[in-house]
Amino acid sequence: MKIAIIVNPLIPVPPEKYGGIERIVYMLIQELIAKGHDVTLYANERSKPGCALVGYHESDHYGLPDMIRINALTSKIAFKKFDVIHTFGRMSNIALLMLSKLPKVVSYQLQPTLSQVKKVIKFAREGSVHFTGCSDYISNQIVPYAPVTTIYNGVDTAEYTFTPAVADDAPLVFLGRIQKEKGTDIAIQTALATGRKLVIAGNVPDETIHQAYFEEKVKPFIDGKQVTYIGPVNNSQKNELLGAAAAFLMPVTWDEPFGIVMAEALACGTPVIGFKRGSVPEVVQHGVNGFLCDTREEMAAFAKDIPKINRADCRRIAEGKFSSDTIGNQYEELYKRMVAK
């Protein structure tokens, strides 16, 4: 098949450090190429996707001029003999393509804007659009209004080293953006309550609210002994960090759409202890590859049960549910169904 994939042009594909959607897009492209498909990516001009690239950009404050200019670009897809178009970006950037009979897959990696979903179904060529959600938590919001399939995010498990055992004093790990919604402070309090070491990795967003959170709730506890902050990490560092961890903490205080880092931890054989928010219960099988909890106190209690988890089960579940091969096969099957209509 000849496939056009679109992603918002904010950062390159693949991303150098953080960029969950861009990482998923790159992984999918590699899988599709390996299966013999012809892929063209519409993305940031600095992308290096390993396939044909059509670079484009948006202004800092997306507006009508951006929409008009980008639609002038993407509308040409209808005349280039593509079999299917798959967008991970703004639906407004393919507004004109909605009038085409060309099969279109729209993937939601974040909370769906249901008003946009309903508008697309109303105005798009009938039967030409199918949505995907990165979890049932996302898909279940769309299902009353449009056809949707859950296809989880995932990782190339070959890039993550399975660590079958770690030292008794192996640290807990928090990896992600340092902000209240991610629960960095809860991870710290969990470590303090259990006496375990905690390694924190990730970036502090530039916004004032996040900088203040770091200064008030995180930085005072960083002592370089029990609580260590190592900043952003690249793929190699992430692999080493997660593989050496006793457990990965996911104390989110919002409804996480997926959380790719959970799949990355499991690929290393590292169990996940997370709050029952959003998609976390779909990733964590309680007592099998980690633990689900509701409070900081429960998280600390389950941290004591980490040795009960078989790290081989963590890796097995990652390979079966969240591997790049699994995700690639699922998207390919969806494309085939769309094209066969």
Rank of each mutant, 00 (worst) to 15 (best):
S139E: 12
P171H: 10
I186G: 00
I186K: 05
L172C: 10
Y152F: 14
I188P: 02
S139D: 03
V143M: 10
P144Y: 15
R177W: 01
Y145P: 12
V173H: 08
V155F: 06
P147I: 13
Q189I: 00
K182C: 02
F174W: 06
A187I: 00
Y145H: 15
D168L: 10
G154W: 13
G183F: 05
N153T: 08
T161A: 13
T150G: 04
G183C: 04
A146T: 04
N140C: 13
D156N: 14
D136A: 14
P164C: 11
G176S: 08
V148N: 09
D185I: 00
I151H: 09
T157K: 03
D168Y: 05
Y152H: 13
V166H: 05
Q189D: 11
K182G: 02
L175P: 00
I151R: 06
D156H: 04
I178C: 02
Q189E: 09
T163N: 10
A158L: 11
G183E: 02
P144L: 13
P147E: 11
P164G: 11
P171M: 07
Q179E: 07
Y137K: 08
A187M: 01
V166F: 03
N140Q: 15
K180A: 14
V155L: 08
I142V: 15
Y160E: 05
S135M: 02
V143D: 10
D156P: 03
F162E: 07
I138K: 05
A146Q: 08
I142S: 14
Y152R: 02
P171T: 12
I188C: 03
I151D: 04
F162A: 04
A146I: 00
N153W: 06
Y160F: 15
P147F: 13
T184H: 01
T157F: 06
T161Q: 13
A146M: 05
Y152P: 03
P164T: 05
I138A: 12
Y160R: 09
Y137W: 15
A165T: 10
A165K: 12
D156E: 11
G183N: 01
N140K: 15
P171L: 06
P144R: 14
T157Q: 05
D169I: 08
L172R: 06
D185G: 00
F162R: 07
F174R: 03
Y137N: 09
S139Q: 11
I178A: 04
N140W: 07
F162Y: 14
V143W: 08
A167C: 06
